[in-house]
Every structure is written in structure tokens, then in C-alpha cells.
Design a protein around this nucleic acid. Structure first.
Lengths: 196, 196
DNA sequence: CCTACCGATCGGTAGG
DNA sequence: CCTACCGATCGGTAGG
């Protein structure tokens, strides 16, 4: 009866995926039923299958879209001939903006990737490990050039990647997040610390 | 047939809860069935209900045990008459050690609390907000005393609480984590930054 | 502790 | 896009 509204510039599949990301974030992938998803769109559950292959495919679409965005962004950062600090600032800024602009999708990629089926699960972890490894290299270079002090590169990368997720908490809180202030504070904290 | 082995110093309920925490972490709460949990213990699913009330109750037990541990620890920190930096170091250290020593439980409390039923869900969030608020106060005091530079206290707290979760990633990686090295690096990063 | 079982709900398909 | 439906699995209970 009610047709699925294609989101502007998108297919019906895109519209379904977007709704799915919102529900997966709010309730978790396993706790979201296809009937709920259908209802939130205004059709019967069986109608969804004219546009998508399976529930798990929706999760795959979300997770790999996010992973790809981060990879593309890091490609660009690596090519720039700027200081290590600048590169790290840019990486952190990109993470923060991704979380603010694609809240549902990034959250789902961060929290629900475990529900991916093989071979997608392995593929996703491979991409993530690669991303982390490239950040480790940036930090190692920075240490060699004396731009950074001598810290443990792997620990620093995981600390940064975790810290940046604090943005998740701001969506649930104060309505009006000043994203510039968030960025400045987090970047300054992670690079300069809390003293002086 | 096979009796549930009571863990040393614990009831059968404790043994079940511990197994549940491991499965909830590995697969997620919603994706773990009571039949799986029973099988991992070596009994039939129905036998579990002689020791526990419901699946959700297992989650409640895990989440509130963790929340309580953090609250008790913060109580002690607040009472100490030491510098703000020392207090923050102690808080960070406690988080890291909790994640290393009670990996499954802390992970579940961090990732699966959304599956809590009311009124437990509201209660859990209340406790978490209170914990965060008390950390904010510590930081505000530190700024007032010029022990910390003038940063946004709420952002700093969420950054610290998120950063500390990087420890999660170390369980899945290198087998032998040197916990002291982890602690020193993360604390130094969050307090002194990456430079000099 | 087990066997036997219940009602509900799940993802997905057939067929139009 | 819908109706009608399937087999599987779920959390949990009855009764011993």
C-alpha cells in the first residue's frame, strides 16, 4: 500500500538501509526485527525483500560504507606533506565529524560489526587492522622525527581511536552540541594533555 | 545429570553469571540463547531456572556489579587529600585494572546495558550520570586550583572515559599485555599529551 | 537435575 | 506492494 519513499538522491534500498541504521543503533542489530523495520517505514515485512537480500546484508552495507569512508580519508591524509601533528589532528577531526554527521552508521559499525557473517566479518576486521596499522606508522614516523615524544605507538593509536568515540555520548546529551568546541577540546586533550 | 560446578567461593548462580558474562561479551546479549549458556555449562536450559530468575536478570547482575565497583572506587578517591592529577591517575588506573581483571563483565556493562529492562535501565543510567558528574566536579576543582589548564570539564571526562576503553582492544590482540606499560602510557597520554 | 512442552516471534519465501 | 504461510528458535513453565 504505502510505497517506500526513496530518499532524495537515493534508491529505495538506501532509504531502508538508513532506517535500519537508526534502529540498529537504538536497539542493537539482533534486537531489531524486520517487522519493526518494515513498520517504521510503513510496509509489510515481506515487502522489504523486494529491495534487499537479507537482514544481515543491511548490516554489511552500513559497516562497509563507514569503513570505506575512513579508508578514503586516511588515503588523503597520508599523501599530504604536513607535520605529524597536523596529520593526527586531521584524523581526529575526521572521526569527530563522521560521528556527528553519520551518527547512526558509525555507531552501528563500531558496536554491531560482531554480528556480521563470514566472510564479511573477517573482511571487516582486516580493514580495521589495516587502518590501525597505518595510524601506527604515522605515529612511528612522528617519533623518529622528534615531533612526538617517545610513546608506545600502538597504545597511542588505540587510545586516540577510543577517545574519539566520546562523541557518541554527546548525541544522547545536550541537544545543541557545539561541534567546533568538541573538536578543539578533544584534539587539544589528546595532543597536549590536561596540564599547562 | 552434570551438576553445575559452584565456582570457588561462589554459588551456582555466580557460576552461571560468570559464564553468561563471557557469552554476552563474545556474542552479545540478544544473540546468546539460554540453550547455549546451558550447553556451555553442561546442563539443559530449563535447569538454569532453578538458580536464576530470567535471562535479563543475568544482565542486571553483571551491569550493577560493575557499576557498584566503580562507585565504591570513586568514593575512596574523593576522600583522599591528594592533588587533582593524582586523583585522575587513580581513576584511570582503576578503569584499566577493572578492564583487565574483569574483562567480560566490564565489557558487557559498557556494551549491553541497553538491553536492560525497566526500571533497571533507568537506574543504570542514573548511576552512570552520577559517576560522570562526580568526575566533572574533580576536574572543575582542578581547574579552579590551577592544577589543570582551562578545558571543558564535561568533554574532558567523556574523553577520558572513552579513551580508557582502549584496553578492550588489547585482550583481543597480543596475548601478553604488559599491564603496567599500558597503564603508564594511557595515563601519560591523557594527562600530558603526545608532545614533550 | 531432567523430559516434555507452550505460545510467541523470528527471518524469509511463494505466489499473485 | 500484499496475504498467507513455513520451519526454526526463542525464553520460560509444569511436573516429577
Amino acid at each position: 500500500m504505502a510505497k517506500i519513499l526513496a530518499s532524495k538522491n537515493g534508491t529505495k534500498k538506501d532509504a531502508i538501509t538508513q532506517k535500519a541504521a537508526g534502529l540498529f543503533r537504538k536497539k542493537g542489530f539482533a534486537s531489531t526485527s524486520m517487522r519493526e523495520l518494515a513498520e517504521s517505514i510503513g510496509v509489510e515485512a515481506s515487502s522489504l525483500y523486494n529491495h534487499i537480500g537479507s537482514k544481515n546484508e543491511l548490516l554489511q552495507t552500513v559497516c562497509f560504507k563507514v569503513a570505506n569512508d575512513f579508508t578514503v580519508s586516511l588515503d588523503a591524509v597520508e599523501k599530504k606533506e604536513v607535520s605529524t601533528i597536523s596529520k593526527l589532528q586531521e584524523v581526529i577531526r575526521f572521526h569527530i565529524e563522521m560521528m556527528l554527521n553519520n551518527h547512526n552508521e558509525v555507531y552501528v559499525a563500531n558496536h554491531e560489526w560482531k554480528q556480521l557473517r563470514e566472510p564479511f566479518l573477517s573482511n571487516f576486521l582486516l580493514q580495521r587492522n589495516s587502518y590501525e596499522g597505518r595510524l601506527v606508522e604515522i605515529i612511528k614516523t612522528g617519533i623518529k622525527k622528534k615531533e612526538l615524544k617517545s610513546i608506545h605507538p600502538n597504545i597511542a593509536v588505540l587510545t586516540i581511536l577510543s577517545a574519539v568515540r566520546s562523541v557518541e555520548f554527546w548525541q544522547r546529551k545536550k541537544n545543541n552540541i557545539n561541534s567546533k568546541e568538541l573538536e578543539i577540546n578533544i584534539i587539544d586533550h589528546l595532543i597536549n594533555g590536561l596540564i599547562k
